[in-house]
């Protein structure tokens, strides 16, 4: 039993370590390396060329063996220091602390909503399997899944923001609205998040619905559902405790993983909506070759995904009694 948790913890730590090492290696693999980046930054800042040369020279002299650099990189990361953004000239950690909650808010909301819809809709069509409703719903699900979320996002901005002007085209809140626990703020935040959330929900709900449909159909064919009917249980109880519960179980891990996955997708989504979450800053960092910010956000998104998978693993035992006794889902 403990073995299971130790394994999962080890895997999470290992993944984070690999990612950190990867970013360390990537920064050094960038054409020109850190010193060229420094030179470029100094040029942008308008520093005198002869002074730049002197700075680079002195840096070259103090350049250390790679393992020392690695050690320093690791220890500064562990103390929460992600470096300073070239482009925004701010500590990377400050940018992330400001932006992350907004992205998490949008993506967690979107994922919860789309799973809620998928569970209900998928179960309904499973019950009506073979009907016109089933055919139409399955067809619609497939059709929706063939639209990338950013395509719908672009359409939303063009239609609802530019053409009709009913939704805002940019930013997390209206100017002047400050983050506080007020009705106005919450309303304004939701108003700005509505289109991004909708474009994720609409484009991703289809495949989850089909997955729920497949699971439900399989559970409906199980003997225990037939026995439950013979035992006289109400249709409602069978639908929730028997079919629903057993059909949702396999989707639980997918739910948490999708939140992490969507955090990655936020780069495109937030660029479209000019929604200043971590995805937007990641985009700015990519375009402006702002490596500290880029790697910092990459690390944060990876950590978020690792954490959500880790939480899924740890809590799965709470909802499925079968895994309590050990790593029986190891094979899957």
């Amino acid at each position: 039993m403990n073995n299971y948790y130790i394994k999962r913890t080890g895997r999470a730590v290992l993944t984070l370590w690999v990612t950190v090492t990867l970013t360390f290696g990537l920064i050094r693999a960038i054409p020109g390396g850190p010193l060229e980046m420094l030179r470029a930054r100094l040029v942008r800042q308008g520093v005198d060329p002869s002074r730049i040369d002197a700075i680079i020279q002195s840096r070259q002299q103090e350049s250390q063996p790679i393992y020392v650099e690695y050690y320093e990189y690791m220890s500064s990361l562990l103390s929460g220091n992600l470096g300073e953004s070239f482009y925004f000239r701010e500590p990377v950690s400050d940018i992330i602390i400001d932006a992350l909650p907004w992205t998490v808010f949008v993506m967690v909301m979107a994922t919860i909503i789309l799973f809620a819809i998928a569970v209900v809709w998928g179960a309904l069509i499973a019950y009506k399997e073979g009907s016109t409703f089933d055919t139409a719903s399955s067809g619609l699900s497939i059709l929706l899944s063939s639209v990338p979320f950013y395509v719908l996002g672009i359409l939303f901005v063009v239609v609802f923001s530019y053409k009709f002007g009913v939704f805002p085209a940019r930013y997390r809140t209206s100017p002047g609205v400050s983050p506080e626990l007020s009705f106005l703020f919450i309303q304004d935040a939701l108003y700005h998040a509505a289109l991004p959330i909708a474009s994720v929900v609409i484009t991703q709900v289809g495949l989850q619905t089909l997955a729920m449909r497949g699971n439900s159909i399989q559970v409906l064919g199980e003997d225990f559902v037939r026995v439950a009917r013979l035992r006289g249980l109400s249709d409602r109880r069978i639908a929730t405790r028997y079919v629903g519960r057993n059909a949702i179980l396999p989707m639980y891990t997918g739910f948490l993983t999708l939140i992490g996955f969507n955090l990655g997708g936020s780069v495109i989504l937030e660029e479209i909506f000019t929604y200043t979450g971590i995805g937007y800053y990641m985009f700015e960092a990519l375009i402006n070759r702002d490596y500290p910010l880029m790697m910092g956000i990459f690390l944060v998104i990876t950590t978020a995904l690792v954490l959500s998978v880790y939480i899924a693993d740890l809590t799965y035992g709470l909802i499925d009694p079968r895994v309590k006794s050990g790593d029986s889902n190891e094979a899957y």
Binding site: R231, G232, R241, N246
Partner: peptide
């Protein structure tokens, strides 16, 4: 039925199986 393993809901304990049957009737 044949195959008792498939006749119980894997996510409910046995007491619940008995109780819900009694309640349903």
């Amino acid at each position: 039925f044949q195959g008792a393993m498939n006749s119980f809901n894997p996510t409910l304990d046995l007491r619940t199986h008995f109780e819900e049957t009694l309640r349903a009737h």
